[in-house]
């Protein structure tokens, strides 16, 4: 008997879903829009974070050494620096490596080779490249390098040139985190409110039916179940719709994000996390649908 009623209310929910055509369309669109806004906010937040992390990785400070300094001493300094907590990595770039890099970057290798012949030796200095864990820590690191026992061996630190970029970047990082969080939260709350209201209106349109159902002897649970299932269907369909919208969005935005996140671009991010995103949107949709339906219907069952 319980099973029979469950099957019945499930079918009833399905019938409500497709017979109420216009209302279903409106509710699903609103739910899908909210889900879309929420997931775009979340995905933007995630990718922005990834972009920021990969940008942060590109910041560094180079310390150039005087021509006479022994390679072994530089390596010793490098190893010492690598022990500091604030420092993420230190790489040694020898004179030869520096030249190699220059040749690799340059399009006019012939000219450079000629110039080198003129000079007779490799004029590029050896250097170490320091990366910090946190962009705010560069200032401190540079200060301690310039104050260290090997300060006599240093010819220059390119920090001042980099400082502006570093400062701006850390500012952007902090700001975008704050803004992302505020907007994200606002959009999520708006999405929930819109959905709740849409479903409340849907329930309101069924108000008279609840009364009739009660009068022919339906229990509250029996009245409620079809609407719970209806909420589930809203959530599932809206979830699928949102996935399609998200696919479209990532497809068009994707070229802009080429190379700036580890997954390559937004589209591959979308596909590599397809089931996560699908599951999350559907679950959110179903929860939104069912909970708002449950709350909305409550006030009409008080006979």
């Amino acid at each position: 008997m319980k099973w029979l009623k469950l099957v019945r209310t499930f079918k009833e929910g399905m019938t409500n879903f497709y017979r109420n055509g216009w209302l279903t369309f409106a509710t699903v669109s609103i739910l899908a829009t909210s889900l879309y806004i929420i997931s775009v906010t979340v995905v933007l937040g995630l990718t922005a974070n990834l972009i920021i992390v990969s940008l942060q990785d590109k910041i560094n400070v180079s310390v150039y050494f005087n021509p006479g300094v022994e390679e072994s001493k530089i390596i010793e300094i490098k190893d010492k620096l690598a022990d500091y907590e604030e420092i993420k990595s230190v790489d040694y770039i020898s004179k030869d490596k520096a030249l190699e890099d220059l040749l690799a970057l340059s399009s006019n290798t012939e000219m450079i080779n000629k110039a080198l012949e003129e000079i007779g030796e490799n004029p590029l200095p050896a250097s170490i490249v320091i990366r910090a864990n946190n962009p705010e820590q560069y200032e401190q690191i540079v200060r301690s390098v310039e104050d260290s026992y090997f300060k006599e061996d240093i010819s220059s630190v390119n920090y001042i040139e980099n400082k502006k970029t570093i400062d701006r970047l850390s500012e952007i990082v902090l700001m975008s985190r704050k803004i992302g969080l505020i907007f994200g939260l606002a959009f999520v709350v708006i999405g929930i409110l819109i959905t709740f209201n849409a479903i409340r209106i849907t329930m309101y349109s069924h108000k008279q039916e609840f009364e009739v159902m009660r009068l022919v002897g339906a229990s509250n649970l029996y009245i409620r179940m079809p609407f719970v299932f209806e909420g589930v269907f809203y959530g599932l369909v809206a979830g699928v719709l949102t996935m399609i919208l998200l696919f479209g969005t990532s497809y068009f935005i994707s070229p802009l994000t080429n190379g700036s996140i580890p997954q390559g671009n937004l589209l591959s991010f979308y596909f590599s996390n397809f089931f996560w995103i699908l599951g999350a949107t559907m679950l959110t949709g179903v929860l939104l649908g069912v909970i708002s339906g449950f709350i909305a219907i409550k006030r009409y069952l008080k006979i």
Partner: peptide
């Protein structure tokens, strides 16, 4: 009358039995 508008005549009458758990 208080009939359920989205149900056919048959379904309206059947509803009163369905809530009973009638087969």
């Amino acid at each position: 009358f208080k009939l359920l508008p989205k149900k056919t005549v048959f379904e309206n009458v059947a509803y009163a039995l369905e809530v009973f758990g009638e087969t």
